[in-house]
Write a protein that binds this DNA or RNA. Structure first.
Lengths: 364, 364
DNA sequence: TCGAAGTATCTAAGCGCTTTGATTTATCGC
DNA sequence: GCGATAAATCAAAGCGCTTAGATACTTCGA
């Protein structure tokens, strides 16, 4: 790999100055058509590819955005090491198992990432995706931050001090509201209305009255979902007889809660879950206890992940517009670059209730 | 956004030279521990984030790899424009429809991309993902090429002249074998054995004898799959009574072929399809004609996309190790960077036959 | 106490591009 | 055909970092 040709080579070949070469690529109309042809031809012959590093340095902008994602399934030991050396090579069999089981469907993070990608492509922005295990997120994050003009992150995927530091330098947008960092741009959804609507549906359409909210890690998103639930109850004049089990993070404990309830034989009319993942776990636990959904108890989720469409009974849920959320993050970032001093934006996108089988409906 | 602090600021604050600052980050052991602390503290206070552009320029390496993917569903009008302006904003409703229908499951390209991402993260490599519509792939591709040390591409997602040009400058690895570019590194799978094995299964385990190969765009992958099919037939001493319908690209024409066969009432014993996508189309067409799979006819695919696991009847297929393929691309790229002069590698990964319902098996 | 041999740090020269302001060349009215 | 104005091109100064090679500082044996 001999070092590639530079503006200097192209300029010499075309018999012009390097400035003209640069103009030919960046501001073509400043260059006479005939000269442009000349330069383009020279570039073509030489196989010239402009260096983004040099451009970025000169311009003070890289022209790329970053996304810091994460992977539920990334084995911590399978992580990135500072020295760039091989930690352990994941065994092929592990990969297959992982993909065939858990990654059968795109998850929330995948769908959002797609939105970010598509929007970046549409707007002609390069996109750097990073991610990784919690161990050394900070180093990775910092590396990415040095390469981009703006960064989109999932909350809690990175320590907030690190984030704050980066936000001093480039715009950062968070998806889903983290409790801290009120001064960053945010993309969220209307959690309150979503859960309120699905809860009202259970009450009004199915005549259920003893509802229980369950699941969710502590976050303002989930706080809002609970609030929507409680609001719907009180609007309907129903007492809140079932103590909400929130936060109720790990898969383990959701399973245990449900199992305990089953053993006591004290099923509510419905489990209103904070997330689809929780709902799936709940349905598994119910199935294990021989409880039929939706006949014996209704279950609803929140997110609208693909898996919920396919399982039986299919999952009634509140769908977040994930791709749109990703796209909106990109919008915010680019907008922020043009208007650094605008007050932080918190875009709240609408959600949509999707009625399927798990609440007792019979979708077409 | 005031311009961020640079090595100069950090150096001044710490009372050292910029070289020492640089060493502190890049070769920490060349710096006395006490000095290092000093520099780190200064960097922390200032919120210093090293510029990758400057580093890349100075080192002649960006430290990033690129992936050029594509999206089946990317509306051409929804594409990237050279001027970076807004073409048309995709309507939210369109997004939802798209995601809920066609993108319900991760596709081949998605799974490979995941592999690339995970391996990059694991190895501490930044990853740039680009993609887009065929319209101006070339400009986008060139932009990406200028940003990375190596590029992974899907075949036919880019014009091969453009690719050749880029390959003059940085290593390029193709996944799945394109007909041209024998001089690039490649990752493929063992197409021949895969189809041979699945065909043998139909013959030996289910006693089928009249088999028809169907589907696939022209490519060396699919050539090999056909060869595997024919090989199995001849090994079994079966005549090739059914003219293979390959290439048979568009969804439309696969549907038509199947419909015509159904109308003639001349079903073969099995359709051996070049890809899962084809197999799904075939099964749709058969269902439309009132033909039962696998009772009236068996169907097999190739790829192992997630959708095949979930549909009924579930799809017997040959699974490619897609994540592993993505990871291998990264391996090849990094290896090539260290050994520019090694002869082109063509890694061929093994595949696995997955027996499900569509061939007549009863998976546990 | 002195010089040799390490260590630690620094000086300075790029890396390949963009872009301002200067300079040259083309265009036009009269 | 001439100056005035506009258009095209150019020279040169960075952008922020890395890294030889030079220099300063330690350490240590004799």
């Amino acid at each position: 790999m001999a070092k590639g040709p530079t503006v200097y080579h192209v300029a010499e070949r075309a018999g012009v100055s390097i400035a003209t070469v640069s103009f030919t690529f960046r501001q073509p109309d400043k260059v006479k058509a005939s000269t442009r042809e000349l330069v383009l031809a020279a570039a073509e012959e030489l196989g010239y590819v402009p260096s983004a590093s040099a451009r970025g340095l000169a311009r003070g902008r890289t022209g790329a955005l970053g996304l810091f994602a994460y992977d539920y399934l990334l084995d911590p030991a399978d992580g990135i090491r500072g020295d760039g050396q091989d930690p352990h090579e994941p065994a092929a069999a592990d990969l297959e198992r992982r993909n065939e089981d858990l990654r059968l469907f795109p998850l929330y993070v995948d769908e959002v990432q797609r939105g970010v990608e598509l929007e970046c492509w549409r707007r002609g922005q390069a996109l750097l995706v990073g991610g990784g295990n919690p161990e050394n997120n900070e180093a990775v994050l910092s590396d990415i931050a040095g390469r981009v003009d703006g960064l989109a992150v999932f909350p809690r995927s990175v320590p907030s001090e690190a984030l704050a530091r980066i936000a001093r330098r480039i715009p950062v947008v968070e998806i889903s509201e983290s409790v801290h960092n009120r001064e960053l741009d945010h993309v969220t959804v209307d959690n309150v209305s979503g859960v309120r609507a699905i809860t009202e549906h259970l009450i009004a359409a199915h005549g259920l009255s003893e509802l229980m909210f369950l699941g969710g890690m502590p976050s303002s998103d989930n706080d809002e979902r609970l609030a929507g639930f409680l609001g719907a109850l009180s609007d309907a004049g129903l007492p809140n007889t079932r103590e909400p089990k929130y936060p109720c993070g790990s898969e383990q404990s959701v399973t245990e809660v449900v199992r305990a309830i089953c053993e006591q034989g004290s099923l509510p009319d419905a489990f209103v879950c904070a997330t689809d993942q929780d709902a799936l776990v709940v349905m598994d636990a119910l199935a294990a206890a021989g409880v039929n959904v939706p006949r014996d108890v209704a279950v609803t989720g929140f997110d609208g992940i693909a898996a919920g469409r396919v399982i039986r009974p299919s999952l009634t849920t509140v769908r977040q517009p994930m791709e749109q959320m990703g796209r909106t993050m990109v919008d915010l970032l680019l907008d922020r670059l043009d208007h650094p001093d605008k007050p932080p934006a918190a875009i709240r996108l609408p959600v949509r209730v999707i009625l399927r089988e798990s609440c007792g409906c019979q979708p077409g």
